[in-house]
Design a protein around this nucleic acid. Structure first.
Length: 402
DNA sequence: ACTCATGATTGGTC
DNA sequence: GACCAATCATGAGT
């Protein structure tokens, strides 16, 4: 117990080493052996120096100091005994009062050193990130799922991605578990250490003046130290999550062909709206839903398709014919054609589709047809005079009736 | 190993 | 912000 005083006092705020006696500027008075009990508030000395009594006092104080300095080198029992002797020493009150005085002086300079530092923005960022990634926070598992959904919201989810999901989730929960274990350990250590230090300070307060404010300060210092360790832990956790996440996203980035059914749906829409193959936002959403892909993937697909169709119309002729037949048949069989998305509340695309197809079915010989006239010579699609976002399938329909 | 198809990305335009 | 055009990167077929 007492042996552990050294690190504490050694790191004390107001002194250098040991019990804060040697090396302290305020201790010159003691080291030069002025009698403490006669140390006047105005700083004048009582002039005992040189007298026999003065020498004795000097020796007394020297003894006390020596005892204080060596107290940590002694065994527990020995130290306790010495401490008791020290407390009972006739010079003890004098020493205490000197220490009080020194403290009073140095206290002024210490007062300003303590200031409430604002919350570290880096720590706030780390906390926010850990929360967002589902590592920190109260729940278990849900955060990981949220992170997965966040990570995949920008990319398409293929049906076979569930394996990657579970892998990601399990790794994330591993990180989470390690993080919480470590955090708990740190917190526990912090609490233990704080209690320990407070006990030590209380104990020391019998020998030297220790104000509650000083204890508070010490506790704050300990907490700051531990919180910096926690920050490191958070940082490492964030890095681990980022690495995991980037790996996961890299895996997602791997190109996978859309399912046949999805390609079919997209192609049907494309060829049935060939005069204006620019699905509205609603149509894109509907197509995305039908194909099990994201809206941006739908946009990508249409972007690629338009370009590639335009570049090589001949190559797509057969495909166009196929879908034309399909859609025409579907339209004839009933209004609720299954191939085209019914955009929310804006009616079916099938009518406009059949109109397109009727105009579009090209001659078998592959000559330029009305179908191909959907693409103008300048490379623009017929009727597309402005970015089509927001254009509803209805506008599409009206164009087709021309 | 090679080629082609195709989904994704990037830089530029409107 | 939607789109185009070029390009990259990967899957699939040979």
């Amino acid at each position: 117990m007492l042996q552990q005083q050294q690190p504490l006092t050694g790191n004390g705020p107001s002194n250098g080493r040991g019990l804060g006696v040697s090396g302290h500027p305020g201790m010159h008075a003691l080291n030069s052996v002025h009698q403490p009990s006669q140390h006047r508030p105005d700083g004048t000395e009582s002039g005992l120096e040189g007298t026999e009594n003065g020498h004795e006092t000097r020796r007394d104080i020297g003894d006390i100091l020596q005892q204080i300095m060596t107290i940590t080198d002694q065994s527990l029992d020995e130290a306790q005994a010495k401490k008791h002797a020290l407390n009972c020493h006739r010079m003890k009150p004098a020493l205490f009062s000197v220490l009080c005085e020194i403290k009073e002086k140095t206290g002024l300079s210490m007062r300003n050193t303590q200031e409430e530092e604002p919350q570290d923005p880096q720590l706030v960022r780390l906390d926010n990130m850990l929360l967002a990634e589902g590592v920190a926070g109260p729940e278990k598992g849900g955060g990981a799922a949220a992170a997965v959904s966040a990570a995949t919201s920008s990319g398409g989810m293929s049906p076979d991605s569930s394996l990657e999901h579970s892998d990601y989730k399990s790794k994330l929960s591993q990180i989470r578990s390690i993080y919480h274990t470590e955090l708990e350990k740190y917190e526990q250590a912090c609490t233990e250490f704080t209690t320990h230090v407070m006990n030590l300070l209380r104990e020391q307060s019998r020998t030297r003046p220790v104000t509650p404010r000083e204890i508070e300060r010490m506790v704050a210092i300990i907490h700051r130290k531990f919180s910096s360790i926690q920050t490191q832990l958070k940082q490492s956790t964030c890095e681990a999550v980022m690495i995991l996440r980037s790996r996961f996203l890299d895996a997602r980035r791997k190109r996978r062909n859309f399912s046949k059914q999805a390609t079919e749906v997209l192609n049907e829409y494309f060829y049935s709206h060939l005069s204006n193959p620019y699905p509205s936002e609603e149509a894109k959403e509907e197509l995305a839903k039908q194909c099990g892909i994201t809206v941006s993937q739908v946009s990508n697909w249409f972007g690629n398709k338009r370009i590639r169709y335009k570049k090589n119309i001949g190559k797509f002729q057969e495909e166009a014919n196929l879908y034309a037949m399909k859609t025409a048949l579907g339209a004839r069989q009933g209004d609720d054609s299954p191939h085209t998305p019914n955009s929310t509340g804006s009616g079916s695309f099938s009518l406009s589709g059949s109109a397109d197809l009727f105009l579009g079915v090209p001659p078998v010989n592959g000559e330029q047809s009305a179908y191909q006239m959907g693409v103008q010579a300048n490379g623009n699609w017929q009727g597309r005079n402005s970015p089509p976002s927001g254009t509803s399938p209805h506008s599409d329909q009206s164009e087709n009736s021309d």
